[in-house]
Nucleic acid binder design. Structure first.
Lengths: 235, 235
DNA sequence: GTTGACACCGCACAAATGTTCGTGTATATT
DNA sequence: AATATACACGAACATTTGTGCGGTGTCAAC
């Protein structure tokens, strides 16, 4: 699967921003204007690509017929608003009434061993939701979850089958457990993060020598988020 | 200010329903069709009224240029979807799967050698609550939580500071992780359970020889509950 | 009975907007 | 060199879609 071009990322960013502001998606021309594309057909072309990659769905011959896949967007760090689509924000009282709970989408599996891509099929419809109380993990903003596959983090007491909850962020401190996207390899993996000069070392936590650290130039590693919680369900 | 006509209410209902399904608002004609209005101008007329009454706002000369005021809608009982995090709306099945939320009391700390009587029936003063979604752990009945102190279960990837969620039950199968009260020793401990004849062996999961199995007559061990989930919050 | 506000209809127009086609330019592949 | 592919451009086209205007019917007020 092809990776996102910079242009496509801009398009996604803009659609999110626009939709959040107006409650309806932009037209092809509105996208082109903002992203700096003079031709409507080019926008159309890229939208088709984005649909192929499941970042959004389109309805043919329908104006503004876009529907974002926000779950998939979270994967690549395109953040959207968290709360309601009300153009007039809910009052404080209403917020209280609703309660401070939030759901976290379990986007798919992340291989902590042999790195594989987060399964795009499951990304459309998260396999599950984890519901937590605010305050438990601090802010409810920008959280998502992944199901761990493999044993590479076993020394960190993260087992195969565990669910890790991550806060979406682009950076992290040395020694923190992160989910990272490795450009070129086109893979997402769960590892400890260490910086080493211009490089980034993604360190597994398993004494088995099969699990080797992955060292890549910093600019080719994009951090998806930092692990803030680990959840295990026994059977 | 005039009240809502039945037609206008239908229009609002439809816009909400449509937007929830497609992520973009309907056109004037789409509204007319569904609500049973043959003329676009009539829809337009009523939309103007609705805007006057602040139920929505419109952008002139913009297709689908509607933005609902969900707060105002809530006042008159027009319900919208609860969440909007996923643009591809959850299926009914998924909605059901998420189910109700419930809170689990964190009753206290549990540690070998640190005698803390834990009585799930006496949840008078829990130090905290964990909030979970039903379906996540099955029934919400008879669940409680404890904060782990010590490393006796480190080999089971249960670390100091983790929160274990237990289902209150008097018995458990061999190999299950349980919280057990040991009469005579007057302590509650978190261990693996094994039966050995008339005896019960409570087995820690730590290679350190300091952590020895505890073997007691079955009648002197009371099982408080079985661990069904482990939760860790990183800092 | 006339007036005027209100709700509605049908239709035509113009603007907005998605689609398509021919073309060009790199880059990789054969 | 020839071919294939991905990406881009511009223009024309066709459909979608909001707007505007003339007209109808009802009802309460004057």
């Amino acid at each position: 699967m092809a990776a996102l071009s910079e242009r496509q990322r801009h398009i996604l960013d803009f659609i999110v921003e626009f939709t959040d502001e107006y409650d309806y998606p932009p037209t092809i021309r509105e996208i082109g204007e903002k992203v700096g594309i003079s031709s409507t057909s080019v926008v159309n072309y890229n939208l088709a690509k984005l649909e192929e990659m499941k970042y959004l769905s389109r309805r043919r011959e329908v104006s503004r017929g876009l529907s974002l896949n926000r779950v998939k967007l979270a994967e690549i760090g395109v953040t959207a608003r968290e709360d309601d689509s009300a153009s007039l924000a809910p009052t404080q009282a209403q917020r209280e009434a609703v309660g401070r709970r939030f759901r976290v989408p379990v986007l798919g599996k992340i291989a902590a061993g042999n790195p594989i891509q987060v399964d795009p099929r499951d990304a459309t419809n998260p396999e599950d939701w984890i519901e937590l109380a605010e305050g438990f993990l601090g802010s409810s903003e920008r959280l998502f979850a992944l199901r761990v596959q493999g044993d590479s983090m076993i020394d960190a007491s993260v087992l195969d089958g565990d669910i890790v909850i991550l806060r979406q962020q682009d950076t992290a401190n040395d020694g923190e457990m992160v989910a990272a996207w490795i450009e070129g390899d086109e893979e997402t993996t769960l590892k400890y993060l260490y910086r080493e000069g211009r490089n980034v070392r993604l360190q597994p936590a398993n004494p088995n020598p099969d699990y080797r650290p992955i060292i890549r130039p910093a600019e080719r590693v994009r951090i998806n988020g930092k692990v803030v919680s680990v959840i295990r369900v026994l059977h």
